[in-house]
């Protein structure tokens, strides 16, 4: 492992991204707006009562945390991996004396820092203006952070193996768009997962998408039974390991093809 090189990469990506910081702020604005809409719709719908077990203020808390989690786990890097492969920039990755995975990881870390500079102040302002209600305990916070870490791992590698399909097809980014749609439907953005119609709820509890965003938020808000929590962690871990193995496998096949064809 080449940690010095990795750190230098993170720093240089961050520097070059700060040059385009307004670009990222605008990107993030676009990503935040969808959950914000559903926050307004649901908290408005709850009115003075409760809906699906949540009050208006709790909906606001749910969505504010969801926005943070969504931004922390959303892997914008994977959108560029396909371009890197198609345009031949991959050669630079392969020529450096370090694991190629360091490059997207450095991008990912740098991107997170840049986007958080924007997201955290906005979320804080919204929290002051909209007055969320949050009742939680320390053990939930800890479990939620654990779930968040897994969620990032899962979402990054799930997107990574999809992006690596660019070795074979020029339109792998269509699959990333499909993933975004499925996350919207099943990861608690359109509505908290427990409020989805039965069929969707079942699909969400088995498929990986809920574990990329909604799961840590549910834990923090305490909207999950002890048994479901355990099952959820098992599913999340299985999907994360699966995504990592699949990424490694596809990378190996892809590199074979790439070097055989010559880029």
């Amino acid at each position: 492992m080449n940690h010095r090189g990795g750190w230098a990469l993170i720093k240089s990506s961050w520097l070059s991204w700060m040059q385009y910081s307004s670009f990222f702020f605008i990107l993030v604005f676009g990503w935040m707006i969808t959950p914000l809409i559903y926050m307004l719709v649901w908290s408005g719908a709850a009115g003075t009562g409760t809906l699906g077990g949540l009050t208006s203020g709790e909906f606001i808390a749910y969505y504010l945390i969801l926005i943070l989690v969504n931004q922390l786990t959303y892997s914008q890097t994977n959108w560029t991996v396909g371009d890197v492969i198609r345009m031949g920039d991959l050669n630079h990755w392969l020529l450096r004396p370090m694991l190629p995975l360091y490059n997207p990881l450095a991008n990912e870390v740098a991107g997170k820092v840049v986007t958080m500079i924007f997201v955290i102040p906005i979320a804080s302002i919204l929290a002051v203006v909209l007055r969320p209600e949050l009742h939680t305990t320390w053990d939930k916070v800890v479990l939620s952070l654990l779930a968040l870490a897994f969620a990032w791992l899962l979402r990054f590698f799930w997107g990574y193996w999809l992006a690596l399909l660019a070795f074979w097809t020029a339109r792998a980014d269509a699959l990333l768009a499909l993933q975004d749609s499925l996350v919207f439907l099943m990861a608690g953005i359109v509505a908290p997962v427990w409020m989805l119609p039965a069929g969707f709820k079942l699909a969400a509890s088995v498929l990986p998408f809920r574990f990329m965003v909604g799961f840590p938020v549910e834990i923090l808000l305490g909207q999950i039974s002890r048994q479901d929590l355990l099952i959820g962690f098992v599913y999340q871990a299985i999907w994360a390991v699966f995504a990592i193995l699949l990424s490694a496998f596809i990378w190996r096949l892809g590199i074979q093809r790439y070097t055989a064809v010559g880029g």
Partner: peptide, 12 residues
């Protein structure tokens, strides 16, 4: 996604 967004809300 558009239709489901509406459908889910009016499920409640």
């Amino acid at each position: 996604t558009g239709v489901l967004g509406v459908y889910v809300i009016f499920g409640q």
